[in-house]
């Protein structure tokens, strides 16, 4: 399923809404999650899962081609943990 198919499903269920409003609604939801994580916040959606930010410490990496060592700065990466209900549903419980 891709973004446009998700929008179509929601539009089909809500014939009273304009397609462009459904697009704005779906885009707002995903945008809000990214903005929260960009601020360092967590987004916890019970039953579905939680988005959070993990810190990766600075380290000395290596250029795999030349073998040369390079300093890699600390950075923050997005992380998703599946919620219990969805995890159970995936396994037919």
């Amino acid at each position: 399923m891709i973004r446009s198919e998700l929008i179509q499903k929601i539009a089909d269920e809500n014939p009273h809404l304009f397609q462009r409003d459904v697009e704005r609604i779906v885009n707002t939801i995903f945008e809000e999650v990214i903005e929260a994580m960009a601020r360092g916040d967590r987004v916890e959606l019970r039953g579905f899962g939680a988005f959070s930010v993990k810190q990766r410490d600075a380290r000395v990496g290596r250029n795999p081609r030349t073998g040369e060592s390079v300093d890699v700065d600390e950075k923050h990466v997005p992380f998703f943990k599946t919620g219990k209900l969805l995890r159970d549903r995936l396994n037919g419980n």
């Binding site: 707002t28 967590r42 987004v43």
Partner: peptide
């Protein structure tokens, strides 16, 4: 970092603000 936790409520609030 503000270390807040957002929930469904915050997402629906954003939708509420975005669309009437």
């Amino acid at each position: 970092m503000s270390d807040k936790t957002l929930t469904r409520m915050d997402l629906s609030e954003a939708v509420f603000r975005e669309v009437g």
